[in-house]
Design a binder for these strands. Sequence first.
DNA 1: AGTATCGATAACCTGACGTTATGGATGTCG
DNA 2: CGACATCCATAACGTCAGGTTATCGATACT
Lengths: 296, 296
Amino acid sequence: MDVDTRLLRSFRAVAEEGSLTRAAQRLYLSQPALTKQIRQLEERLGARLFQRSKHGMAPTAAGEALAAALPSVLDAWDAARRAVRGAEAEASRVLRVGFLASAANEKTQPIIARFRECRPDWRIELRQASWGDPAAGLVSGEVDAAFMRLPFPRQDEFASLALLTEPRCVAMAAGHPLARRESLRFEELLDEPFIAAPGAAGAFRDHWVAADARGGRPVKVGAVAEHPDDWLTAIANGDGIALAPASAARYYARPDIAYREVEGVAPSTVALVWPKAVPPSGPLSDLIAAAAALAD
Amino acid sequence: MDVDTRLLRSFRAVAEEGSLTRAAQRLYLSQPALTKQIRQLEERLGARLFQRSKHGMAPTAAGEALAAALPSVLDAWDAARRAVRGAEAEASRVLRVGFLASAANEKTQPIIARFRECRPDWRIELRQASWGDPAAGLVSGEVDAAFMRLPFPRQDEFASLALLTEPRCVAMAAGHPLARRESLRFEELLDEPFIAAPGAAGAFRDHWVAADARGGRPVKVGAVAEHPDDWLTAIANGDGIALAPASAARYYARPDIAYREVEGVAPSTVALVWPKAVPPSGPLSDLIAAAAALAD
DNA sequence: AGTATCGATAACCTGACGTTATGGATGTCG
DNA sequence: CGACATCCATAACGTCAGGTTATCGATACT
């Protein structure tokens, strides 16, 4: 009987959450979709994996057996995937590095240049990811490392080297009434509609609407943006405002957008990030050294 | 990046065969379907896994890396699946045994009765499989053991205990001209249309059209049958004839079907079969002992 | 009784993935 | 050199798998 690792991850989420509804939220699926997945897994395995009740889903003995055996399967696949990626990188002499928006700002090019001095016959392929994947291809294994803004989903599975920290500011349409001010406090922005990242971005999305500074009040989402382009457009159109790193005023300057200082929100850190499961060696180690030499 | 083990098995088949076309045949898929699968795997892994040429598919370094890592993944999943099945059997006190057609003939019930004496609080659930799955649920892991006719696909992965051997006869419509004879030679049947098992049955299908006794001549297929019912109907309707175990004359007697002796084809063996990867213990071991006591 | 929460089911829609048919490239043979 | 064979890739098409929203039944709580 074949299985998709996606089904196994769904099973694991249900087993950990003890609830279909909560697991579905965590997986960014609807509850019926997850119900079907679990039923499908049960039917194909020929075993009832959960005892259903009003209180949720309690694993059966068979369910416990699967939960116990699951790490071996997922880790084996993860290792296989990394082995493929490693062989491909060696064969092509390309290190793939994911990034969002402006990567590591002005440090990006010097880091790459430094790496190139160290490894003249290698090259770095930069891959931009959408905000729907704030881990910039690291979780999926498409890239070897990434320039990322903290926090991002599943951060505990990765090692990171902080490169720079910068304050956050607020971006709004140039004609917005608050744009007449040089500096704002975050409480003044609580009722404004915000441009948010997609739901699947999880903690990353929460961070960029400063959910932790809202005292439990839900954010009003004016629009959802996946890329800098649509984000800029939505802001300029007045669909909402957004928190942004201070560097955005340099990298994304436009006459129809005003960037203003804001107090009451934590600064933003950019880090070079790589999987903990991959002890750095060879080219990856060199990239990390290059970045460390230029870190704040 | 998630993956379905089915894709991994497809990859393995291509890597082993070194040819998409031959691997597609082995997997009972069309070649374009398999092309798509491999392309999908390559795209999602972000690596070219094969070098394509007129001569076939040669694995790249990345492809070799995946081939090397693959057994760990598939074995881990196999172990997980068996752990689930084992926990389920223990919890429900049910041993699942697959079978085709008449199982182990008259020995079936005595074996089960003997097992019950040994394990009074256990029970055996018999599951009939179609001829599209001549391994009767063993390969897919749906059952713990099976009464099977040799040969069956992937037989080398299983241990077997031969229970009985019986000659094969030929079944045909009662009004067939050859039915007037008591005994026939297989060469006399070479031009007759045969009722065959589905293509996915592989070696099992070949065995029951006696491909090995045809000297390379292809069999003419009059109809395909998946179950004894449609097989009997097709024979009675004159769509074709078929080889059958001698016991079929007892278990599947009908006034419109004649069973006749045939020389020149090997006899048929029924065995109790279980996975080599599962050293028999507990209830499975008891079932094997019960069957051994009644074997020829 | 009203409300909240849980998982299950129904209806619906989209896209994934299979098939057959065909094509391009290369090699072999008469 | 032309005909044929063989390989993998691509196109067109059809089916159904798997997602969604809406709703339901069961239970618990106030």
